[in-house]
Nucleic acid binder design. Structure first.
Length: 495
DNA sequence: TTGAATT
C-alpha cells in the first residue's frame, strides 16, 4: 500500500522534473500537468494528504505568477500537497486561477478563512478567491436568477431566497459600470434547497420593470456556457453558420459544420494571416467540436496540423456518420440527478427547452423567452429532420433561383440579420422549415452593404408559420431576429 | 437574462 503510493508519487515527481527542464514541453500538455509537485527522491519526504483533504480553487491570480511564486503565499497555512496553475489547453495561457490541495484538511480551512476575499494580488481589481473547487461540491446547487429588477440588491435577492435553504453565495451580475444586469447567481448548501427555491419561485412573480416573470433555474453547466459563448462569438465575428444553431440538438450535423468551420479557420490562421482572433476562435471551435463528440474520437485537427490544408470549403475530416440521431453527442448523457427526463439532455447543446421545473408559468412563449433561445425543439420540425436525414453530411441543396414571391401567408419579413448575411445565408437559415422559393437580403445601393433585413418565401403557409415560431426572437450575437409575415401588397394601403 | 477563473 505505502509502496504503491510512493511509486505513484515518484512517477509524478519524475513528470514534474521533466516538464520543468524548459525543453520540448509544449504549452498545454506536459507543461501544466504538474505545477508544484511532490519532492522527488527520499520517500520519507513524499507528502501524503488526508483522506478528507479539500481541493481549493484559487481565483484572481495575476497571470505573471506561477506555481513557485504562489507557493510561499500558501505554504504558511500548511504543507502543500499539490498546486497547479490552470492553463489554456491550446495556447498555454495562464488562466488566472489555480487548484491547491494541502496535505491536511485543516490547512485548507485555515487558508480559506485567512485569504478568501481578504487581499488583492498586485494588478488585480478583485480580491483573491480561495474556496473549495467545484469538483468538491455535491451536485447542482447553484441557481441562475433572471428577470430581476435592476434596482434589486444582493440583500433583496437573499431575502427572496433565504426561506428555502442556506445561501452560501449570492451575487448580482453587474456590467462594468456597476449596473445590475437584472440577473444573479444564488448558491445553496444543497441541491434539494436549490430545487425547492425553483419550485417556489420560478415564474412566481414579475418584478417591476422586468419584461417577464422571475426566472429561477440551475445555472448553466460548463458545456452550456461554452456553447453559449461560442454562439455569441460566432455571431459577433460574422462566422455564424446558420445551420449549426437551429440543428444544435442534432449534434452530428452541427458538429460536421463546426469542424468544417474550425478546420477552415485553423488553416486560415496557419496561412500567414496572423490574426490572433482567428486563431483563438479556431481553438474555441475545436474545443466545442470536441465537446460535442462526447467521447467519440474527434477528427484530428490541432492548430498545427493544418499547414498544408488549402483554405477551401471541404473539411478534411468530417466523420461519416450514419444517423444524426444515433450519434447525437448528448443522448449518451445520463439523466440529471434532479430527476429531469433524459430527453432534456438532448437540448444541452446551448438550446434549452422550456424549463421543466415550472409548475406556475403556463405561457410557453414567455418561458421560451426566459430560456436562452426562443426555439421550440425538434418535435416541431419534421421538415427539418427530413432535410437532415436526406442531406447529411452535405449542406442542404442550394438551388439558384429567381426572386419570386409565394402565396399570401408564405412570405416572411426578417429583421436584424447579421450584417454579413447575403441571400444564400438567409436561404440556408430558413431551409430547415420548408421549401424556400426565394430569399432576398436588402442591400444599400450606394454602399453595397446589407441593410440587415430581407424576405424569405416558402411555397406553403405552414412552413412560414413554423419558421416564424422557430426563428422569431432567435439570438445571433447581440441581436435577436424579428421574423414576421410580410404584409400582403394591398393590405393597410387605403390609397 | 449565465460571473473573472474550475484541471
Amino acid at each position: 500500500m505505502y509502496i504503491k503510493m510512493a511509486t505513484l508519487a515518484n512517477g509524478q515527481a519524475d513528470n514534474a522534473s521533466l516538464s520543468t527542464n524548459g525543453l520540448g514541453s509544449s504549452p498545454g500538455s506536459a507543461g501544466h500537468m504538474n505545477g508544484l509537485s511532490h519532492s522527488p527522491g527520499n520517500p520519507s519526504t513524499i507528502p501524503m494528504k488526508d483522506h478528507d483533504a479539500i481541493k481549493l480553487f484559487i481565483g484572481q491570480i495575476p497571470r505573471n505568477l506561477d506555481e513557485k511564486d504562489l507557493k510561499p503565499l500558501f505554504e504558511e497555512f500548511g504543507k502543500i500537497y499539490e498546486l497547479t496553475v490552470l492553463k489554456d489547453r491550446f495556447t498555454g495561457m495562464h488562466k488566472g486561477c489555480a487548484f491547491l490541495t494541502y496535505c491536511e484538511r485543516e490547512s485548507a480551512l485555515k487558508a480559506q478563512s485567512a485569504l478568501h476575499e481578504q487581499k488583492t494580488l498586485p494588478g488585480m481589481n478583485r480580491p483573491i478567491q480561495v474556496k473549495p473547487a467545484d469538483s468538491e461540491s455535491r451536485g447542482d446547487r447553484k441557481l441562475f436568477v433572471g428577470m430581476l429588477n435592476k434596482q434589486q440588491s444582493e440583500d433583496d435577492v437573499r431575502r427572496l431566497f433565504e426561506a428555502f435553504g442556506n445561501i452560501e453565495e449570492c451575487t448580482i451580475l453587474r456590467g462594468p459600470d456597476g449596473n445590475s444586469k437584472g440577473c444573479a447567481f444564488v448558491k445553496y448548501s444543497s441541491h434539494a434547497e436549490a430545487q425547492a427555491a425553483i419550485n417556489a419561485l420560478h415564474g412566481s412573480q414579475t418584478m417591476p420593470g422586468a419584461s417577464s416573470s422571475l426566472v429561477v433555474k440551475f445555472a448553466d453547466t460548463d458545456k452550456e456556457r461554452t456553447m453559449r459563448r461560442m454562439q455569441q462569438m460566432a455571431g459577433q465575428m460574422g462566422m455564424f453558420n446558420p445551420m449549426a444553431i437551429p440543428f444544435g440538438a442534432y449534434g452530428a450535423y452541427a458538429q460536421a459544420l463546426m469542424q468544417q468551420q474550425a478546420a477552415l479557420m485553423a488553416s486560415v490562421a496557419q496561412g500567414g494571416y496572423l490574426n490572433p482572433m482567428a486563431a483563438f476562435a479556431a481553438a474555441q471551435m475545436q474545443q466545442m467540436a470536441a465537446l460535442n463528440m462526447n467521447g467519440l474520437a474527434a477528427a484530428p485537427m490541432t492548430p498545427t496540423s493544418g499547414g498544408s490544408t488549402p483554405p477551401g470549403i471541404t473539411a478534411p475530416a468530417v466523420p461519416s456518420i450514419p444517423s444524426p440521431i444515433g450519434v447525437n453527442g448528448f443522448t449518451g448523457l445520463p439523466p440529471q440527478a434532479n430527476g429531469q427526463p433524459a430527453a432534456e439532455a438532448v437540448f444541452a447543446n446551448g438550446i434549452h427547452p422550456y424549463p421543466a421545473q415550472s409548475p406556475t408559468a403556463a405561457d410557453p412563449l414567455q418561458q421560451a423567452y426566459a430560456g436562452v433561445q426562443q426555439y421550440a425543439g425538434p418535435a416541431a420540425y419534421p421538415a427539418a429532420y427530413g432535410q437532415i436525414s436526406q442531406a447529411f453530411p452535405q449542406p442542404p441543396p442550394m438551388i439558384p433561383q429567381q426572386q419570386r414571391e409565394g402565396p399570401e401567408g408564405c412570405n416572411l419579413l426578417i429583421y436584424h440579420l447579421p450584417q454579413e448575411f447575403g441571400d444564400a445565408e438567409l436561404m440556408q437559415m430558413f431551409l430547415p422549415f420548408g421549401n424556400v422559393i426565394s430569399s432576398k437580403v436588402f442591400v444599400d445601393r450606394a454602399t453595397n452593404q446589407s441593410k440587415c433585413f430581407g424576405f424569405v418565401s416558402f411555397d406553403n403557409p405552414a412552413s412560414a408559420q413554423t419558421a416564424i415560431q422557430a426563428m422569431n426572437g432567435f439570438q445571433i450575437g447581440m441581436k435577436r431576429l424579428k421574423v414576421q409575415l410580410k404584409r400582403p401588397k394591398d393590405a393597410n394601403r387605403p390609397y
